[in-house]
């Protein structure tokens, strides 16, 4: 379980996190949703000690994030934020091997290599393993970064917008992979997602943020409803049931009031 108590953070006069209290269920896939600037990345950073909040407490399992040894926490929690300062000299496989650093301090053993290769297979990047990172497309680079986090092989995984740049096929494969990691391996996963329907289709639990506060949380059935969505996104949308899943129709204003809209009309 990840547990946050009264976490607040401000940049100058702007409050970015406003006394957030939150528990994230263990062994589940939790999606963090909300509009731009809501504070999702900041909250994720605070959970992963990338940022020290002004006040509040963050626990990851039984580790207090703010006082835990960096190396100890890195074996327990993996995080992916946008690394904009990626050295151009790294190849894909170099990058993914960094994921093993907390376990072997850069001296990889056979077991480490096995896990690295598995992560490479998972993200479908074997054919690019010796390419330099600046010779990849945005989505391929994103998958390489995710492979690094997977190779870290941690109980807790935090991903900031992992679907960024991914095409639909790889987006679905990514969610499926995260789903498996939660179901089969009991990993606790938190992902920031922008597409409410990806969140609805794949996550166990949704946390909606707005202006630095958690304004709604619950199962997809509870959150993907007209009222909570308006509360979180300030956007009015029609919600339809497709195969037992809630889908928000937000792509065009004309879809909002179309009560008689049939799923077949959209997806057929």
């Amino acid at each position: 379980m990840i547990f946050l108590h009264a976490v607040s953070h401000a940049y100058g006069a702007t409050t970015v996190l406003d006394g957030v209290d939150l528990s994230i269920p263990r062994g589940k896939l939790t999606a963090l949703v909300g509009p731009n600037g809501a504070g999702k990345s900041t909250l994720l950073s605070a959970m992963a000690r990338l940022l020290k909040p002004d006040t509040g407490q963050v626990m990851v399992g039984d580790l207090d994030v703010l006082s835990a040894k960096p190396a100890q926490l890195a074996k327990k929690l993996g995080v992916l934020k946008q690394l904009n300062q990626l050295s151009a000299r790294l190849t894909v496989i170099d990058l993914v091997r960094f994921g093993r650093f907390p376990h072997c301090q850069g001296r990889l053993q056979a077991e480490d290599h096995r896990i690295v290769e598995q992560a490479m297979d998972y993200v479908d990047l074997q054919e690019f393993r010796d390419r330099f990172l600046d010779q990849l497309s945005g989505g391929q680079r994103q998958r390489a970064l995710i492979a690094m986090v997977l190779a870290q092989d941690t109980e807790y995984i935090l991903l900031d917008e992992p679907l960024n740049n991914l095409d639909m096929r790889h987006g679905v494969a990514m969610m499926q992979l995260l789903r498996q990691a939660a179901d089969d391996l009991g990993r606790t996963i938190v992902v920031v997602l922008h597409d409410i329907n990806f969140a609805s289709a794949w996550a166990d639990y949704l946390v909606g943020m707005r202006d630095g506060s958690v304004v709604a949380q619950g199962t997809p059935e509870q959150i993907v409803q007209r009222e909570p969505l308006r509360e979180i996104f300030g956007l009015d949308m029609q919600v339809v049931d497709v195969a037992g899943r809630k889908i928000g129709m937000y792509w065009h204003p004309e879809l909002v009031g179309a009560e008689e809209l049939s799923p077949v009309a959209v997806y057929g």
Binding site: K69, K81, L83
Partner: peptide
């Protein structure tokens, strides 16, 4: 951030 994520001080 990369350092913190990988447990390097």
């Amino acid at each position: 951030d990369g350092c913190v994520a990988l447990g390097v001080d």
